[in-house]
Design a protein around this nucleic acid. Structure first.
Lengths: 242, 242
DNA sequence: TAGATTGTTAATCGATTAACAATC
DNA sequence: TAGATTGTTAATCGATTAACAATC
């Protein structure tokens, strides 16, 4: 009933507190809805969403309710409004500027992700220690010497830092980010960073992710073993012959 | 009591079914333990682990119990054994070979992650469509034309495929992987892949991850606003002056 | 012995799922 | 009207946390 008002703080700012599992599903909803929209639809039901994403429709409904979206029985949700509600909730309307440190392959990859800007993240500059990289541009972004970071971050009020350096250097970089007033670190280095309480770290740990993959694979192989019979015998000696 | 036997299947194969949250913590334990070992310790307690990782010691104990590790009251766990138990459970002793498709920046980054091999993943070959890339080597790995993938995957019994191509091309690549008998796909493209049931997909979706980061940041900013007073005024005009 | 830590069971907490009335 | 879908409350499920005996 007065749920929508509960979602606002006294000053009208949306109070963004959804359960973490819900939060992780919201971008998936957004992506599906964009495709659904491209398909010419004007409304969408939780059943539609759940069918595609293999989720319980009730769960979808709860998630949508939690961001304050309202639908109509029998009809569903107005697609345009729902997409907008999602984008508003996710903060994709106002863009945060970010600094990236580590202009290697991973750094370059992230600098090239154009759609980050549609998701509220604009990487404005890269930093590195390697003199051969400093002064160049990657995907149009300048590569500056690392020691400029703290000063520039302060002056430009940068809140987000992205770390794509090797593990050994990550802590030093994090310290410089903290010094520059950065409040959130997206850490691609496989290491736990020390940091003051006011700074949050979001680890993108591919090694942990790999563990999940491997585990899913073994579980899957146990359930449905490979059609080995013919293959594993006839092809055995070819295994190393690239 | 007979917990350890419950962890085995009739044929002695370990039955790897731990809760997903537990699974995600295991690699963190491993990393901490390696550091703890480097510090000269020979045993470790759940208290030690929990202190460092900011986890409830009871939770750590349950997690370790779930992989069949046993400790001794007052002493803790023998570090060497515990690390080995983790590595065994995570399957890091036997390596899976993988094919990677998409020799761009992200692909190059992954090809350069040497430690994957210590985590049971060996990327043996890369594939691409770009003639200028085909025939080259990246981090020592050959880049082959994409159309060779299905045949080679079959002959080499490759089970894991990694997709680092743009979203538009990802489905086509996935289809070729499936054709080659690949059973697990690590998908870095921001798109949901269609696939037969016997194949598992593990999505590495940086856009979803970015949402988590942004949300943590806003929550954090609401709790502890920036020390703006002096900075945001004196430095305001410098914001765009790189 | 005293105290820290394991092993294990019970209580709590939170998310998912089920149920069902309201409504278009 | 009938039937699909929303909105909402209750039941279930599973993970985390608390409690405590066993033990070194």
């Amino acid at each position: 009933m007065n749920l929508k008002t509960q979602l606002k703080q006294p000053d009208g700012t949306p109070l963004k507190t959804v359960p973490e599992p819900t939060l992780k599903r919201l971008p998936l909803y957004h992506r599906f809805l964009k495709g659904w929209q491209a398909g010419g639809h004007e409304t969408v039901s939780c059943t539609d969403i759940g069918r595609d994403l293999e989720l319980d429709p009730t769960q979808v409904r709860k998630d949508l309710e939690s961001i304050g979206a309202a639908g109509r029985p029998r009809i569903g949700y107005v697609l345009k409004n729902l997409i907008e509600a999602l984008e508003t909730f996710l903060g994709w309307n106002n863009v945060n500027e970010a600094f990236l440190v580590g202009a290697g392959s991973m750094g370059s990859a992230l600098l090239g992700y154009r759609k980050f800007e549609q998701c509220g993240l604009k990487i404005v500059t890269a930093f590195d220690l390697d003199p051969s990289k400093i002064g160049t541009r990657i995907h149009g972004k300048h590569v500056l010497p690392l020691d400029k970071l703290p000063g520039l971050a302060q002056r430009m009020h940068i809140l987000i830092g992205i770390i794509t350096v090797p593990a050994a250097e990550a802590q030093g970089v994090a310290d410089m980010m903290v010094e520059g007033g950065i409040r959130a670190i997206w850490n691609f280095a496989p290491i736990r960073l020390q940091k003051p309480e006011r700074v949050i770290v979001h680890n993108e740990d591919l090694y942990c992710s790999l563990v999940e993959l491997s585990q899913k694979l073994s579980a899957n192989l146990q359930n449905t073993p490979p059609k080995r019979a013919n293959l594993s015998r006839t092809g055995a000696t070819a295994a190393l012959a690239i």
